[in-house]
Amino acid sequence: MSNLTLTLILAGGLALSGCQSATMSQGGAGDFGCLAGTVSGAILGGFAGSAIGAGSGQLWAVGGGATLGGAAGSALTCR
């Protein structure tokens, strides 16, 4: 995996974690779990997209995987 791909995966994860709002839950401990689930989902989704994509479509696969992974991580941990 190239350095550019890893950089894009990490940047996507950080961008998705910036979308989290502190007003979503009442407790302080739940916020960290929600944020960690979203970021880890985005990172894992980016890695999965990187493994699936090939050629010029790999960048789209990484972006799509990071987006879907972040959404899935958020849905599972932010309740």
Rank of each mutant, 00 (worst) to 15 (best):
N3P: 02
L4G: 11
T5E: 15
T5S: 08
T7A: 13
T7G: 07
L8G: 09
L10C: 08
L10K: 09
A11Y: 06
G12W: 13
L14C: 08
A15H: 00
L16V: 01
S17V: 14
G18Y: 04
C19Q: 14
C19A: 13
S21L: 11
A22T: 05
T23K: 13
M24N: 12
M24P: 01
M24E: 14
M24R: 08
S25P: 00
G27F: 04
G28L: 09
A29N: 06
A29D: 09
G30F: 00
G30H: 02
G30P: 00
G30R: 02
G30M: 01
D31G: 07
G33L: 15
G33F: 15
C34T: 07
G37I: 03
T38F: 05
V39R: 00
S40P: 03
G41N: 07
G41Q: 01
I43G: 07
L44C: 09
G45H: 02
G45I: 05
F47C: 14
G49V: 10
G49F: 06
I52H: 00
G53S: 12
A54Y: 04
G55T: 05
S56W: 05
G57T: 10
Q58V: 11
W60F: 14
W60L: 15
A61C: 10
G64T: 08
G64I: 09
G65D: 11
G65P: 01
T67Q: 04
T67W: 09
L68T: 11
G69M: 04
G69T: 05
G70W: 01
A71V: 14
A72R: 02
S74D: 06
S74V: 05
L76M: 13
L76T: 05
L76A: 10
L76D: 00
T77P: 03
R79K: 09
